[in-house]
Design a protein around this nucleic acid. Structure first.
Lengths: 165, 165
DNA sequence: AAATTTTATCTTGACGTCGAGATACTTTAA
DNA sequence: TTAAAGTATCTCGACGTCAAGATAAAATTT
């Protein structure tokens, strides 16, 4: 059974028979699937009154464990946005009462961003819901296929993860 | 060997042992890999003086085959952006001499966007280069693994492709 | 044939991100 | 101890996207 990427590849094969377009079979599907996942995520978060970017920040704090504090610098490394963006995000999350800014006791330049109880509740509920949705998406895959594909994807991502630091 | 997603999952398991985070093994890797691919694409296009969004539009026209014409409406379906965005993109590509706007002879409301020879050269060169880079990324995978993963990804994407129309 | 609805494209204003630069504080070196 | 370099965060202007609305033409209905 065909998908959109099959159409895409077929068009390129017709127009550029000189090119080997085999890599698209994997990588174009990864890109398209990711775009769809983003949309599905946004929908799942809608239920909880959260935007995707809000979840990203709150989730980073939640993962850090009690007392759910991270510096803006750590946060922007976790979420891969720039410092100007993070300042803006923390401003808006503060206005919504989901996080608060605290002075860093050990560095007077620094700030700690901390999850409020409301923020923690919001991210916990959203995360549970997100996983339910994701599980449904993977429903068609056997457990064995899931393990297989996870292994292969890890292989593909590794070079990127390593090139930092 | 571990990757960033392993770290991520481990953190969630520690903080939320009540949740089944297995779906992240596949889907978080898809999202992260896609983000990395976007960056790699941007770099590949840099060599040819193209932005990613420029390539997306030019590639859609190129795939359409001679005479490399599509309406703005068709283009925005292919590239998944809104009409305001497409107007803006076509404006800028026209300014760069990579496409031109022609009146649609069969519908006076309509416009046809056509690749110029310079536009065609640019997209052809960029596409060849992109595939070379992508092939390198997939280098570590056996052909068999590539086929396998493509098949599984097609399965995962299909529900999304179908829900439209 | 006139009125209505639909289709195609462009215009506009709001919004979020980026990236360069500014500010304040800390660390290292002289 | 003073100067220089480094680090953490915020400010601000430019840019691209989106979504709603405007305009124009075509298709459909009456």
């Amino acid at each position: 059974m065909e998908d959109e990427v099959d159409r895409l590849i077929e068009a390129w094969r017709r127009e550029r028979p000189d090119l080997d377009v085999a890599p698209m079979e994997v990588l174009s599907r990864v890109s398209r699937l990711a775009r769809h996942l983003d949309r599905a995520r946004s929908q799942a978060f809608d239920t909880h009154g959260l935007e995707s970017w809000e979840f990203d920040v709150l989730a980073a704090l939640r993962r850090a464990g009690a007392p759910y504090q991270l510096s803006p610098g750590k946060l922007l490394k976790e979420t891969l946005v720039t410092s100007g963006t993070m300042t803006n995000r923390v401003d808006r999350l503060t206005a919504r009462g989901l996080v608060e800014r605290l002075p860093d006791p050990s560095d007077r330049r620094g700030v700690l961003v901390q999850l409020t109880p409301a923020g923690r509740d919001a991210v916990d509920a959203a995360m549970a819901d997100l996983l339910t949705h994701e599980r449904a998406l993977l429903g068609s895959l056997s457990e064995r296929d899931q393990l297989r594909i996870a292994r292969v994807l890890r292989e593909l991502v590794r070079p990127f993860d390593q090139e930092k630091h």
